[in-house]
Design a protein around this nucleic acid. Structure first.
Lengths: 225, 225
DNA sequence: AGCGACGCTGAAGACCAGCTGAAGATCTTG
DNA sequence: CAAGATCTTCAGCTGGTCTTCAGCGTCGCT
């Protein structure tokens, strides 16, 4: 899932980025309103976490301009508690949810997930493919009834494949979806994680759910391999 | 959106038709399995609402025959609640969703809409030519039901031909589309790959989907050869 | 029938994409 | 701070794929 954090408190933003990335989100950061606005319109995010106090262009303006421009991402506003700006106004400008600073990290993650779920209800919560079950909500994976322990990256890769089950997904697509867009390293990271994934969900079961399509990318077999 | 209702309860079918037409759907009705099957294959519907209890040919049979014939419409099965036929079986035969009778009209409409949306979103780009099926999304190719393993180049050539099925495509066009457009090598590479393609999708089946038009180029027969 | 142009195809070697083990970097946890 | 897990980078390896080439077949024209 792709998240954009727009906050001028660099340390907070960096901490959030690290934390969320560890949970498997792909996170980009902007430190002012103008940059955030441009970033959010240029690239499709699932959720934008938007601080209200921003240099240049405040959060309300960014939010309403995004909505005016037809942006369909979820917008979670961070409101300072001093009461100068209130939550009702945040919702009025088109935000989907708000959180008062200071907030607990755990709460933020829960809200992010809830928001993403709410927006993406059309997306299946569970993808079942033959003997392979990927539970996007619980972030768990079952193969032939066994619970498989996956790392954050592994799961994120599997998630993206599962959401496009049956179709070939290029390594570039996976990079864009799972890593943030500034990642410019080798696509070999994808190969490494796919390799690890196969070692866990395919090899021990003699299956081949994750198929290589040479010269194009990968495909998750709709029958689970 | 085009909907076909196949149900032998004439009053129910007529009521549904009126209701759905009022909501802007284009609705046709059939009262038995044979008619429904013929109607569904003759005309492309977005969704077929299919009762299971039908005179002549039951809903399961209609459904599996439709799927066997390559029908890609959404199929919503109406299952009687007496439990004689269960939902798992409905899904097995290729239905996309089911609804137990008696059902609420509002629920039916919601399900219809959801189904149409679901199908529309994941509309795989598929080109079907007689016994030859080229799935551009999954990058797979089926000939008479067999999965054909193609290399990246072979598939790319076939893809370009399929997108212009029935038209003659010059070797130059293929070079520009499949190879880099500044490729200045011999056009013989195209011949080599076409040759390999024919060996896989035509020769074993005694067909000739890929036709040579001497002095001009190649043409993919619209009837699959 | 004979000729030339065009197209087909088998073989061979260059080439390249993808796989994987290992090592170092980085982050998390106790 | 140490231990452990995870992520990324790297390089060697493998096997499939692509291209080239040459020889042959086929077609259309005279």
């Amino acid at each position: 899932m792709r998240v954009l954090i727009v906050d001028d408190e660099r340390r907070l933003a960096a901490a959030l980025q690290r934390g969320l990335e560890a949970e498997g989100f792909a996170v980009d950061v902007a430190h002012d309103g103008i940059t955030g606005l441009r970033q959010a319109t240029r690239s499709p995010y699932d959720v934008v976490v938007l601080d209200i106090m921003l240099p240049g262009l405040n959060g309300y303006k960014v939010c309403s301009m995004l909505r005016a421009g037809g942006c369909r991402s979820g917008i979670l506003m961070l409101t300072a508690k001093d009461g100068e700006w209130d939550e009702a106004e945040a919702l009025d400008t088109g935000a989907d949810d708000f959180l008062s600073k200071p907030f607990s990290y755990v709460v933020l993650v829960a809200r992010l997930r809830a928001l993403a779920r709410r927006l993406g209800e059309r997306q299946p919560r569970v993808v079942r493919l033959g003997g392979l079950t990927v539970d996007l909500g619980a972030r768990t994976c079952l193969r032939s009834g066994d619970q498989i322990r996956l790392t954050a990256r592994e799961f994120a890769v599997l998630e993206h494949l599962a959401l496009h089950a049956g179709d070939v997904v290029s390594k570039r697509d996976i990079l864009d979806a799972v890593w943030d867009e500034h990642y410019d390293g080798d696509a070999n990271v994808v190969e490494v994680h796919v390799s690890a994934l196969r070692r866990k969900i395919d090899a021990p079961y003699g299956r081949a759910a994750v198929q290589t399509v040479r010269g194009v990318g990968y495909r998750l077999a709709v029958d689970g391999g």
